[in-house]
Design a protein around this nucleic acid. Structure first.
Lengths: 148, 148
DNA sequence: CAGTCTTGACATTGTACATGTCATTATGAC
DNA sequence: GTCATAATGACATGTACAATGTCAAGACTG
């Protein structure tokens, strides 16, 4: 098979991969009250410590209005709180509550141990290469779209 | 970075990859009247020559009712036709019309040439490895889900 | 302080499906 | 053949994940 055919195939495998990944994540979220999307919000806050709604939207590359809805859910569930923003009185800084931090930490921990159990049969350099190739493909696809 | 962290990262890159890929495909579909989904139907028919609606649904791993809608669209646009099925009078075999075949051939051809232009900087063995790793991950994720 | 941006809130719309139901055949077991 | 069961197409309804538009309040810039 030619290289370009393999790349083509690889690109189209992104959908099954994503579906399988999200199904697996969803399973791990069972009982937590989280969805894949609210989980994504908590994950960002866990990594960044704090962020405004528009900042989260930029990270997730989806629009701020929808992120606002997701954040409002996490606020209602007491997983996050609004803190005063010294730079902008109307735009609150969102941070995790202790409860939220514990929850996302637990979720990510369980996901990581699942991944570890899947890592048998794959060696480090192969994974590294795969990561590099996929990163490059995303870059190339995006730049192709913008160049129109 | 540890191997499992890299795998974790790779898995989560499937969404941006898929989005970038579908955006690129959508761009290539501009003016054809096709959507990413009807394109998928035509692609299967191009590869398989013929298929019933339930068979297409199985390939796409989505439910037959939705596939029926997509197929009906392609029938309305004269890209496919219903042929008699000797094995089942009610379930027509769907095949491409000459118009449909020419269209999907052209679309795939343009996609392939785009991929070729992106393949610089990636060598064959790297792509091969990436394909192998991603395939393995999909397998592992799916079997994990089923084992519950 | 006038004009422009940013943010949050809310309403509307769209896409991509899943699910349920029904009538119409088909098929397989007897 | 007959009868139970399954497969198919058609249609209705529901849902998750958003995009888009609009507005008012507040913030920032010159």
């Amino acid at each position: 098979m030619m290289k370009s055919e393999q790349i083509y195939k690889l690109i189209w495998m992104s959908r099954p991969l994503m579906q399988a990944a999200e199904n697996a994540v969803e399973l791990g979220l069972d009982g937590t009250g989280l969805t894949v999307r609210t989980r994504a919000v908590l994950e960002i806050l866990y990594a960044e410590d704090e962020a405004t709604v528009p900042a989260i939207a930029q990270k997730l590359e989806i629009n701020r209005q929808y992120v606002q809805l997701m954040v409002n859910e996490t606020l209602a569930d007491n997983l996050t709180v609004r803190c005063e923003n010294p730079r902008h009185k109307k735009s609150a800084i969102i941070t995790l509550t202790d409860q939220g931090r514990a929850l996302i930490k637990d979720v990510i921990g369980r996901e990581m141990s699942l991944v570890r159990s899947m890592s048998a049969g794959l060696n480090t350099s192969e994974v590294e290469t795969a990561l590099k190739v996929v990163t490059a493909l995303i870059e190339k696809l995006k730049s192709n779209i913008e160049s129109d």
